[in-house]
Design a protein around this nucleic acid. Structure first.
Lengths: 144, 144
DNA sequence: CCAATAAAGGATATTTAGGTCTTTTTATCA
DNA sequence: TGATAAAAAGACCTAAATATCCTTTATTGG
């Protein structure tokens, strides 16, 4: 469904959100440990997320990654997926055709419309706050 | 969503179904031309589909690929996806966790259940016959 | 200012997906 | 039965995704 980079990106952002809700910055190392991801690769993804404005980064001692409360509420899973994997999964043709629309549909075009809409809507509605609180109170997990 | 191999596999099978409904075998070359795919790569995918029993293959002159009427009715998009990409898309965790179930869910587990069910059901219900007739009467396309 | 810390950035390696090519096997038919 | 057409099989190549390493830059506290 998503690329590895995107999976890591979502998990990392959720973890950063949890810590930020407790007014704590987290370092790359902590993040990679928590979400069980390769450190250097995670660094690249976090750079991208920082550039996209999804997370804030700070250098130096006491530095690390964080989100402000506005971001925690406003950033949706959809934003992370778009930043890392792009919008192909939301707009691309199920069979990979360049031109595939209501006028010139591929054989599965109509079948995919509903599913894609559900997915898009769900990801657009799901905020970091919602996912972070679920993780924070132990309802969900990021490892294993 | 699907791998390239899977996209080609679905398109190829639909085309074979159309031709089979007109009692015609099709060669690899015709298939690759029709679905606009690399010939040699398509050959590999068709081998896999033949081994999986999704299409029948015949060697020699007048040889090629075909499906019997039972296959055209019974083979679902789901079967092709499973044969080529496996069932990860139907059963795997959205965030790539090994262990992710109702007991130990990842943060997006519940959110994905419905969408995944919709996708699975849709693909399990969609037969080659349905897609082949849509293509045959010009309602849909495989190119561009 | 200095030393320690942490992210940024560039270069490189590894793995997987995607794609190609050649040889072998099988079937048809002249 | 031999020439030929077609798929099967497997070796091989390429590009992209994944992952690592190392150097640079910014920030902080002493």
């Amino acid at each position: 469904m998503f690329s590895k980079a995107c999976e890591y990106g979502i998990k990392a952002t959720i973890f950063i959100a949890v810590k930020s809700l407790h007014d704590q910055r987290v370092s790359l190392k902590e993040i990679a440990e928590e979400i069980d991801s390769p450190v250097a690769f995670t660094a690249k993804i976090l750079q991208l997320l920082a550039k996209s404005g999804i997370v804030d980064s700070h250098k130096g001692p006491t530095g690390g990654f964080q989100m402000d409360r506005t971001g925690i509420d406003n950033v949706k899973v959809y934003d992370i997926v778009c930043a890392i994997d792009g919008d192909k999964i939301f707009n691309g043709c199920g069979l990979g055709l360049k031109q595939c629309d209501a006028e010139h549909p591929c054989p599965v075009h109509d079948k995919f419309i509903g599913i894609r809409e559900n997915l898009t809507t769900m990801l657009q509605k799901t905020s970091m706050f919602e996912l972070a609180t679920g993780l924070d109170i132990g309802l969900t997990q990021l490892k294993r």
